[in-house]
Simulated scan of single mutants.
Amino acid sequence: MKRVINKAVNLDLVGVNGNAFMIMGVFGRQVRKEGWSQDEIDTVLKEAKSGDYNHLLATIENHCEPKDEEHDH
């Protein structure tokens, strides 16, 4: 799957409650914190919601690139 927009957020979904609304909420908070525009957020979430749960998860995960803080030193 390709990205809907060519951006990624520093977010690791491991350990996030698997509920679709929780995943979208965590994603939404993080992208706002990182300064994404409302249009960018809406584009990703619209695509995420256009299919089933697995599509939602794959779309959001595809826009996440968690930075490994421990190995950046």
Rank of each mutant, 00 (worst) to 15 (best):
Y53V: 11
V9A: 14
G28D: 01
K67Y: 01
V16H: 06
L11T: 11
K7I: 10
G28A: 15
I41H: 02
V31Q: 03
V16R: 05
G51V: 10
G25S: 12
N10L: 12
K33M: 06
T59P: 00
I23R: 02
C64R: 09
P66N: 05
L11I: 14
M22C: 12
R32F: 06
E70N: 10
G35D: 07
N10V: 11
V4Q: 06
V31S: 04
I41V: 12
R32M: 15
A8I: 10
Q30M: 13
G15F: 02
N54W: 07
R3P: 02
V44H: 04
Q38I: 14
M22K: 12
K2M: 09
Q30I: 12
H71E: 10
I60T: 05
S37N: 07
E47D: 03
P66D: 05
T59I: 12
F27P: 07
L56I: 11
K67V: 10
I5R: 08
F27T: 12
H71Q: 15
E70P: 02
F27H: 06
H71W: 11
N17G: 07
L11Q: 08
A48L: 07
D12E: 07
E70V: 13
E47L: 06
F21K: 13
K49M: 13
K2I: 10
K49R: 13
I5Y: 02
V14C: 12
K2W: 05
D42V: 14
D12L: 07
H73W: 08
N19D: 14
L11C: 13
E61I: 14
K67A: 08
E65A: 13
E70H: 03
D68G: 05
R29S: 08
G18L: 05
E47A: 10
V14D: 01
K7T: 05
I41C: 08
D42F: 10
F21M: 13
L11D: 09
M24R: 11
V31Y: 00
E70D: 11
N19V: 15
G35V: 12
P66T: 02
R3G: 10
D39W: 11
M1Q: 11
N19Q: 11
S50G: 10
N62M: 15
R29F: 02
K67I: 14
D72M: 14
E47S: 05
W36V: 10
D42R: 06
K33A: 15
I23K: 00
I60H: 00
G18M: 09
V4F: 04
D52H: 09
V9Y: 04
N62A: 13
D72E: 15
M24Q: 11
M24I: 08
N17A: 13
I5G: 04
M22W: 08
I23S: 04
K49D: 07
E40G: 06
K46E: 01
V31A: 05
H71N: 13
N6W: 03
W36A: 09
T59V: 14
M1W: 06
L56Y: 04
E70T: 09
G25H: 01
S37D: 01
V4A: 06
G15S: 03
L57T: 12
K7Y: 00
S50D: 06
E61H: 12
G28L: 09
D12V: 06
T43W: 00
A8W: 06
L11N: 10
T59G: 01
L45F: 04
A20Q: 11
C64W: 04
R3L: 09
M24P: 00
I5S: 07
P66A: 08
T43S: 14
K67D: 06
M24V: 09
E69M: 12
I23D: 02
A20Y: 00
F27W: 05
S50I: 11
D68C: 09
